[in-house]
Design a protein around this nucleic acid. Structure first.
Length: 144
RNA sequence: GCUGUAAACUGCUCUAUCGCGGCGCCAGCCAGCAAAGGCUGGCGAUGAGGAAAGUCCGGACAACGCAGAGCGCCACACCACCUAACGGGUGGGCUGCCCGGCCGGAAGGCCGGGUGGACAGCGAGUGUCACAGAAAACAAACCGCCGAUGUCCGGGUCUCCCGGGCAGGUAAGGGUGAAAUCGUGCGGUAAGAGCGCACGCCGUCGGGUAGUGAUACCCGGGGGGACAAACCUUGUGGGUUGAAAUGCCACGUACACCUCGAUCCCGUUCACGCAAGUGAAUGGGGCAGGGUUGCUCGCCUUGUGGAAGCCUAUGGUUUCCGUCGUGGGGGGUAGGCAGAUAGAUCCCGUUCGUGAGGACGGGGCUAGAUAAAUGAUAGAGGCACUGGAUCGCGCAAGCGCUGCAGUGUACAGAAUCCGGCUUAUAGGUUUACAGCAAAA
RNA sequence: GGUCCCGUAGUACAACGGAUAGUAUGCAGGUUUCCGGAACCUGAGAUCUAAGUUCGAUUCUUAGCGGGACUA
């Protein structure tokens, strides 16, 4: 379902701090994706297996209007394409935290952002799938 | 009518699909003794600005002990009024510059229009005034002018006069400079100078008239470099800190560790005791800190308790524990509720006031987020500009109407709330002024 | 959210309100050397922007732009 509710938003400062310390990342121009798989135990209170948030750096975009618009467009692109990632989620109950950072030098049209989001979520899904097939790698990740 | 400038106002609309925030109602699930609550879904209405911005001022509100004195610091600066307050606004005064007209011999003044003024005080002190120039501030002589007076030389018609030089006088003129001792005219003089007088300019003091006042006009005295966005002086105002303030709830943790400092003196009352004295309570001072405003004083406040040992023993000193505090290093949390959205509020009318604005009456108004909502996509329309087309008028240039295509539709996003200021802004509307063109 | 500070050559810093804005390093050209380095000589290069005060502004004032620090 193409919604974006309270639980699907990444809000905890703690998790975000861990995201930057331990998480993995890749770039899909003009976006950059930082993601982390967390064990299900830590995820019990909120209740959503996939949490997402956006950041647009103030350094490149001085005006709040521009930042707001980019954030809304990215969020919209995620909302319309996130089904792809849900379909690839492992059955272990692990949660995924995801932060998207806009790294473009200037504001690009929505069609380019949407295409980048579509490609990136595809890449992320492919990274998920092999892990469900090989339990050893998954245990390694969880113990970490 | 067009163009420009300034001010004020305004600053896109609709539909479809998928979404978001808080609110109300309904349903389901979770948890609970219950009340309250959490989650999910449906329906409903609702959801950024004139600057929400910059954070430059002023308040409300809150806390700090209801906050004392002096110094320091900061801000403001013609007057009156408006206002909760302001460095904001309104009206007035004075004044610089430009244009036009008039008066005067000139200096200068008056009137009208436009456009500016951080507009208290260099008539308190200190300081600065580069270069150039003789000289840049209780002074000073480069060229020039004079050489009356004194003196020297020469000559003559010899108690006097003429010529030249020196001492010296002179701030009119030249030249330098941003600026040269107020300007014009007359007198005066050897030559000159506010040296004197008349008129005028600019400050200041005293008096009178008008005005709430700034100030204006009249009379009189005394006066005449600039700079306070130089130090400063005078007057007025400011207690400090800001919603990450502050109050409450929940959760978690370490009264652990190292370091350094204070732990003293004098009294009063009561109890016990024959007494020395002991114990308890309390007051003052000192010491070590803390708080209050940057500093000082003042004020408020915390600790000043116990045990043991040594000695030269009615006392001195050392150590340990405790208490209070300084610094170091470390640990935990970073959730919720209130503050926080109806108010110096907006609109209309009447009325007072030149105006900012005030008074009265009537009516209207739920954005309240917190890793932070108000969006995305598609389509249609409106408005502006450009292009050329059809039709109408016209000889033509061109103008008008209709529809078409392209481009543009700005600046910008609430974060405790208000009043201002400043800055950004496509397009549109109105008013004022200026210029141009045409007609009467 | 709040408070404070700073903008000068490419870089790091100077300059009581006063002459052509200085020093180091870097850059360009030349001398020297077989070549390079070092050394020496010469040169180019800047006051964040806009108004104002002043005879005169890097300096003083105001507004804007940019950068940095502190505060839970």
């Amino acid at each position: 379902m193409a919604t974006f509710t309270r639980h699907e938003r990444l809000k905890s400062r703690k998790v975000i701090s861990r995201l930057f310390q331990e998480g993995q990342s890749f770039a899909q121009y003009p976006l950059r994706f930082v993601w982390l798989v967390t064990p299900p135990v830590e995820n019990v209170p909120p209740g959503s297996p996939l949490q997402f948030t956006v950041s647009v750096p103030k350094k490149r975009f001085k005006h709040a209007v521009d930042r707001n618009r980019l954030r809304r467009q990215i969020r919209e692109a995620y909302r319309l394409h996130k089904e792809k990632l849900y379909a690839a989620l492992p059955d272990t109950g692990n949660a995924i935290s995801l932060m998207v950072i806009y790294t473009g030098a200037e504001a690009l049209p929505y069609t380019i952002i949407a295409e980048a989001m579509y490609q990136a979520l595809g890449r992320l899904s492919r990274k998920m799938l092999p892990r469900t097939d090989s339990p050893s790698a998954q245990e390694n990740n969880v113990s970490k």
